[in-house]
């Protein structure tokens, strides 16, 4: 038993080192004013600076791509919720079959990888609805689909934990319309899973590269990829910030998920 525990600790420590090393390397590379070739144990604490990040923040290209990414993220989260919450609520109320169909459809994006989706999208829309390809907001529906498996799961957990039938009957017996029932009864009761879904949608959009890259839209990940050459320190610094943000988003959606389950 003792030996088993020592082995278990060893496993965790090795894996932990594997997880730590790239992050440390990236942090040092981005935030130390030392040529990469000279980074070593000896200068671990020397010449730390956040200047690369500040300078990058001042770049107009960075600003425009960051603002685009934030707008896309918010639009995606909003569209996801508008589309999913009422539909899933009705399904939970009325029809088990519909619920299963929606569940099944939510796994479809796993079947169609982002690269295949964007290729098909570009081909299909180029001739018929080219505005979707021209406008950067044409990305939003594709992002909604990419995030669907995660956002659906989050909302499903919230709805499954509710006795929706009783809530809605109570609300409607008091004379509320369907619209009022959704906004004032259902939404407040699943606000934790709505927040979870929104966080997950934001995370997906902020990190998404494939679709934006193939449709040549200058989102944040694309900016990172392009500026890697001229401004390596700055782009690594921004990359680190992105990792931090997505860590916070995922961690908080996890925490909220636990609230839903209990």
């Amino acid at each position: 038993m003792r030996r088993g525990r020592a082995g278990a600790w060893l496993v965790l420590v090795v894996v932990f080192v594997y997880y730590l090393v790239p992050m440390i390397a990236m942090t040092r590379f981005a935030f130390q004013r030392i040529p990469v070739i000279k980074l070593s144990f000896g200068n671990l604490f020397d010449k730390w600076t956040i200047a690369p990040l500040i300078e990058t923040f001042k770049e107009p290209e960075f600003r425009s791509s960051a603002s685009l990414s934030v707008q896309l993220a918010i639009a995606t989260a909003a569209l996801t919720l508008i589309l999913l919450v009422p539909t899933m609520a009705v399904a939970h109320l009325r029809s088990k079959r519909m619920r299963r169909m929606i569940e099944l459809s939510s796994t479809l994006p796993f079947v169609v990888p982002a690269i295949a989706l964007v290729v098909g999208f570009a081909g299909a829309f180029r001739e018929t609805l080219p505005m979707f390809i021209r406008s950067p907001f044409g990305l939003v529906p594709l992002y909604v689909i990419t995030a669907l498996p995660f956002t659906h799961r989050a909302l499903e957990n919230g709805l499954a934990a509710l006795d929706l039938r009783t809530l809605v009957d109570a609300s409607q017996s008091l004379g509320a319309t369907w619209y009022r029932t959704v906004v004032f009864v259902i939404v407040p009761n699943i606000r934790a899973s709505i927040a979870t879904a929104a966080f997950l949608a934001l995370t997906v959009v902020l990190g998404e590269f494939t679709i934006a890259s193939l449709l040549l839209k200058n989102t944040l990940p694309l900016y990172l990829s392009y500026s890697q050459g001229q401004n390596p320190q700055g782009s690594f610094a921004v990359g680190l910030v992105l990792i931090l943000i997505s860590t916070i988003f995922v961690a908080s959606s996890n925490r909220l998920g636990k609230v839903v389950r209990s």
Binding site: P22, M23, M26, R28, V36, G207, E208, L224, F236, I243
Partner: peptide
């Protein structure tokens, strides 16, 4: 995790 930032981290390491 994944995408560009993860690639950067491994490039740095």
């Amino acid at each position: 995790m994944g995408g560009i930032p993860l690639a950067f981290a491994f490039l740095a390491a």
